[in-house]
Structure formats: structure tokens, C-alpha cells
């Protein structure tokens, strides 16, 4: 296994389908990383003074709130994660708990068509397919968003 994350949480990641792209860091998470921010931890908890969450977006762990958070960075909902020239896509992952889908993770698509994820407090990786990070921790990709690919992230 290429990184230091617990393998049982991400059982589909192997040396053959992912590459570590930056070392472990506590200071940002997957949501920030997908939004293009590697300086802050994004998460919508109601207590102030803990995390970043875009102003005006409900501090709720719902897919709609996460989509609104990404919308503040220019993303709009799209159909799927297929590669399109000049378009940057993100995938929002969720896990079913009872009747709710709870957001757990986000990844963004590289120009190559592969995906990039920050794994909690662990490393950033690039992974060949989205389902490489499917599993008991993140569930699966349930919503896609896109924006014009920026010259610099």
C-alpha cells in the first residue's frame, strides 16, 4: 500500500491504482482540496472558530450544503465524471446512514482524467478511477459538479 492511511477504510486503493502526491498534513482536508484550497480545513460544523465554511452556506452535513459550498468556487452541478476538455470536475462522495446520504469526501478530476483526493489528515493521492476510494469510510460518488478548468488551481 502506498500511503499511511488505514487500509481497511480504503480497501480498493492499491499500489496499482494510486500514487501519493504530497505528504501527510493536518491543515486541510478533501473538501478544501477539491475546492482548490490547501490552507484550510473545510467542514460545516455549527461551532464557530473551528473550521472554514463559506459564508452564507448552511452549516449542515447535507449534500445540498456541500454543493452550495462548492458553488461559491464556481462549480455547478453536472451529470457525471466523464472527462471533458477545458472542464474541471469534482465528485462528492456520501454514505447512506438510515434514510440520509451524508457527505464524506470529495475528489477533483485531473487533466489526465484521473482523480485527486486528500485522505482526511493523511496524504494527497492521485487515483486512476473514482471507485478506488469507494468503501466503508467514504461510500461512493453520488454527485458531480464542474467549472471551467482554471489555469492555476
Amino acid at each position: 500500500m502506498p500511503g499511511s492511511w488505514p487500509p481497511h477504510e480504503l480497501p480498493n486503493l492499491t499500489e496499482n491504482n494510486c500514487v501519493e502526491t504530497s505528504p501527510q498534513h493536518f491543515g486541510y482536508n478533501c473538501i478544501a482540496w477539491a475546492a482548490g484550497d490547501n490552507t484550510r480545513w473545510w467542514w460545516p460544523i455549527p461551532v464557530r472558530g473551528i473550521n472554514y465554511w463559506p459564508k452564507g452556506v448552511p452549516r449542515q452535513e447535507t449534500l445540498d450544503a456541500f454543493a452550495l459550498a462548492f458553488a461559491t468556487r464556481g462549480f455547478a452541478e453536472c451529470a457525471d465524471g466523464s472527462l471533458e476538455a477545458g472542464i474541471e470536475k469534482i465528485a462528492i462522495f456520501a454514505k447512506r446512514i438510515g434514510i440520509s446520504l451524508i457527505p464524506t469526501h470529495a475528489a477533483f478530476q485531473l487533466e489526465s482524467g484521473q482523480w485527486s483526493s486528500k485522505l482526511g489528515t493523511f496524504e494527497d493521492i492521485s487515483h486512476v478511477t473514482l471507485d478506488a476510494v469507494n468503501g466503508p469510510l467514504y461510500g461512493e460518488a453520488v454527485r458531480f459538479m464542474s467549472r471551467p478548468r482554471p489555469a492555476v488551481r
Binding site: 492511511w5 477504510e9 482536508n29 467542514w43 473551528i50 464524506t104 469526501h105 482526511g120 489528515t121 469510510l137
Partner: peptide, 12 residues
């Protein structure tokens, strides 16, 4: 704690 939290991004 660091072992228990695993690779989650959820502060909760």
C-alpha cells in the same frame, strides 16, 4: 485518537 479517527474529513 489518531488511530481511531482514521482518514475521515468530518470534524464531527
Amino acid at each position: 485518537w489518531r488511530k481511531e479517527r482514521g482518514a475521515t474529513s468530518s470534524t464531527s
